[in-house]
Every structure is written in structure tokens, then in C-alpha cells.
Simulated scan of single mutants.
Amino acid sequence: MRGVSVEALRELGYTVVSAANPLEALQLLDGGLSVALLFTDVVMPSMSGHDLAVRARERIPGLKGLYTTGYTRNAIVHNGILDPGTNLLPKPFSIDELATKVREVLDGI
């Protein structure tokens, strides 16, 4: 899913940097990479998407975030994994849904 999303976003004109895991993402940020949006899965083996976003925002205050997951929004929010109102794109999603949601998050809609 990551590969398809990366290619779709590139085709839409976005500059995309992909990391294989949360630690690699943080290393990229520590190396000076500046990004406008963090698009991450909610559930990952080494670190949650929420924890990744918290650590990324320590490096880039105000960084916008978009999460994706195969779980329902209710399951994620009610289990305390994400805060209500968090930008979430449920899986599976279409390229059009991805494009729309990324634009909304970047524009603050």
C-alpha cells in the first residue's frame, strides 16, 4: 500500500520521501529533511503512528499529519490510539480519496 500511495502522490505532483519504518523516518528528519505532511499508518510494529507524529513534531513544530488504518475510526479513537478529530484515511482508499484528503490536510480544511 505504501508503494502505491507514494507513486500516486508523485504522479499528483507531490515530492514524496518514503521511509521503511518509523525509525528511518526520524533519522531522515534528524538529517535535516523538512516536510509539510507526515502520512503514516496508525499501527506499526516498532512504534505507533501517533508516537511517530509526536516525535516528528518535536523536530518540525506544526507538522501536519494524516493517518491511515484498516481499523474503523471508532475502534482507533475509543481505544485511545488517536484523538477525536484526527485526520484519518481509512483503508482501503482510492487514489482520488488519497488526493482529496492530502489536499484537505495541507490546506487545513
Rank of each mutant, 00 (worst) to 15 (best):
M1D: 14
M1E: 13
M1G: 15
R2V: 15
G3S: 14
V4S: 07
S5Q: 05
V6W: 12
E7V: 12
L9Q: 02
R10A: 09
L12M: 00
L12Q: 08
G13Q: 01
G13L: 05
G13F: 02
G13M: 04
Y14Q: 09
Y14M: 06
Y14H: 06
V16Y: 04
V17A: 01
V17F: 00
V17Q: 04
S18E: 07
A20E: 10
P22R: 00
L23D: 06
L26C: 03
L26G: 01
Q27N: 12
L29G: 00
L29H: 04
G31R: 10
G32A: 11
S34L: 13
S34P: 00
S34W: 12
A36N: 15
A36Y: 09
A36M: 11
L38Q: 06
L38R: 04
F39V: 12
T40C: 06
T40E: 07
D41Y: 01
D41P: 00
D41Q: 01
D41S: 04
D41N: 03
V42R: 06
V42N: 00
V43I: 03
V43M: 06
P45I: 03
S46Q: 13
G49A: 09
G49N: 04
L52Q: 05
L52D: 01
A53V: 06
A53E: 05
V54Y: 04
V54L: 07
A56G: 03
R57S: 08
E58Q: 10
E58I: 11
R59W: 08
I60D: 14
I60V: 15
I60F: 14
I60A: 14
P61S: 01
P61V: 01
G62V: 09
L63A: 07
L63T: 07
L63R: 11
G65V: 13
G65K: 12
G65I: 14
L66G: 08
Y67K: 13
Y67M: 13
T68R: 08
T68H: 03
T68Q: 05
T69D: 15
T69E: 10
T69P: 12
Y71P: 01
Y71N: 08
Y71A: 04
Y71I: 03
N74V: 12
A75G: 09
A75E: 14
I76A: 07
V77N: 08
V77W: 12
H78A: 13
H78R: 15
H78W: 13
G80M: 08
I81M: 14
D83H: 14
P84S: 07
P84Q: 05
P84N: 00
G85D: 00
T86S: 06
N87W: 02
L88R: 08
L89K: 13
P90E: 10
K91V: 11
K91W: 14
F93A: 04
F93K: 02
S94N: 00
I95M: 11
D96Y: 14
E97C: 05
L98K: 13
A99H: 11
T100R: 14
K101D: 03
K101Y: 08
R103G: 10
L106Y: 11
D107T: 05
D107G: 05
I109Y: 13
